[in-house]
């Protein structure tokens, strides 16, 4: 499933730990990794954060690999691209095709960028896989991010999952009727799907407004903070 990241964030050993600590740790380490731009430090961070994610948060290694795999595939491609098509300076290696060469400069770019991403990804993973979105938003609210921003984000987060269920149903219905059979058909089906979702979302927003109003909504969503289970 696409959204198992959200599920994992709610079901791991670190879900209940202090979200401020996790948020600040992630941000500080991210800045540090970028600022140092040191290959050994990148690998060090990668190892430490992977251990934290796998051993302390007890996240299934398969889900963690899945989280890493797509960005990693991208970064390998783009860094190869950087190595072969950029840079000036001393030529290290000639491919012999179209005068494409690897230079000291381009190798430096490619390698450093690759390891920077390697260092940063587990940090993003640490925050994304252990902290539910609602908690992050609550943190941001106390850090003086405008209230309206947080509220729209919270309402959005709620509606996303409703839409995804609906899309799933609709797409299956279209598929069983050969809606994605040919190229032009898939465009038509996708357009129909998206516009129907938009029309539905308008109805939903009205319902949402009514339900908020009927519960005395004055432009603020108070959040219940459960006491920590120590």
């Amino acid at each position: 499933m696409k959204f198992d990241m959200d599920y994992i964030a709610h079901h791991n050993e670190l879900t209940e730990s202090n979200p401020y600590f996790k948020l600040f740790l992630t941000i500080i380490l991210l800045i540090l990794t970028l600022a140092l731009d040191n290959l050994y430090f990148d690998i060090f961070i990668f190892t430490v954060m992977s251990i934290v994610i796998l051993a302390i948060a007890k996240i299934n290694w398969r889900s963690y690999l899945k989280f890493l795999s797509i960005p990693m595939a991208f970064v390998v491609i783009t860094c190869l691209f950087l190595i072969f098509f950029f840079g000036k300076g001393e030529v290290i290696y000639e491919t012999g095709i179209l005068g494409i060469v690897v230079t000291t400069d381009s190798l430096h770019y490619g390698v450093y960028t690759f390891f920077r991403v390697v260092g940063c990804l587990p940090l993003l993973g640490f925050l994304a896989l252990t902290t539910p979105i609602a908690k992050i938003l609550h943190c941001l609210a106390t850090l003086k991010v405008p209230k309206i921003f947080i509220e729209i984000a919270l309402l959005m987060y709620n509606s996303i999952f409703i839409f995804l269920n609906e899309i799933d149903t609709m797409q299956k219905a279209q598929e069983t009727r050969l809606g994605y059979h040919s190229y032009w058909n898939s465009f038509r089906s996708l357009g129909a799907l998206a516009s129907t979702i938009f029309l539905r979302s308008l109805d939903k927003s009205e319902t949402l407004q009514h339900s908020l109003d009927s519960r005395g909504y004055t432009g603020e969503l108070p959040i219940y903070e459960p006491r920590k289970r120590e």
């Binding site: 696409k2 309206i148 509220e151 729209i152 984000a153 309402l155 959005m156 987060y157 509606s159 996303i160 839409f163 995804l164 899309i167 190229y183 898939s186 465009f187 996708l190 799907l193 998206a194 979702i197 938009f198 979302s201 308008l202 939903k204 927003s205 009205e206 949402l208 407004q209 908020l212 432009g219």
Partner: peptide, 28 residues
């Protein structure tokens, strides 16, 4: 906008969700 018409907050939120969901669809 929200000060003028308070109902528009729900509309904005739902449209944002629509944008997110749209980005999870695959385009042929």
């Amino acid at each position: 906008i929200v000060d003028e018409t308070p109902e528009s907050k729900a509309l904005l939120a739902v449209s944002g969700a629509f944008m997110f969901v749209l980005s999870s669809l695959k385009l042929p």
